[in-house]
């Protein structure tokens, strides 16, 4: 666990999987949610709000509050507490509202 994490993990038998957060590799225990994995890895802020750009982080951990919204494998506004980590998962902060033309941009990247 990184030194600046708000949480420590009890020793468990679960193997680690590798995910990426903002392009950085993170080794996290398998079977836990993306939100738990980010908190365990010392990530303090996981999104910026659509209205004022204020920083936010997971709040309820049970799918109710939508504070833990992140981008998962390019899909915006995913509830990090409802997605289980898996090898190679690419996670980014949700920066404000999702882009309306996200798909068009994606197409442009793919050379469409």
């Amino acid at each position: 666990m990184p030194a600046d994490s708000l949480f420590i993990q009890l020793p468990t038998d679960s193997p680690c999987v590798m995910i990426e957060f903002e392009g950085q590799p993170l080794a996290v225990p398998s079977g836990i949610s993306v939100a738990a994995a980010l908190l365990a890895s010392g990530i303090r802020q996981t999104r910026r709000t659509a209205v004022s750009g204020a920083p936010r982080a997971p709040y309820c951990m049970m799918g109710v509050c939508f504070e833990c919204l992140v981008e998962v494998n390019g899909v915006p506004n995913c509830q990090a507490c409802m997605v289980t980590v898996s090898d190679g998962l690419k996670v980014r902060r949700q920066q404000g509202a999702r882009a309306l033309n996200a798909l068009a941009e994606e197409g442009a990247h793919d050379g469409i």
């Binding site: 666990m1 994490s5 708000l6 949480f7 420590i8 993990q9 009890l10 468990t12 225990p29 836990i32 949610s33 738990a36 994995a37 908190l39 365990a40 951990m61 049970m62």
Partner: peptide, 11 residues
């Protein structure tokens, strides 16, 4: 929930 589902405790 962090304790139940991810064995996490405040550091």
């Amino acid at each position: 929930i962090l304790l139940k589902s991810a064995a996490l405790l405040p550091a």
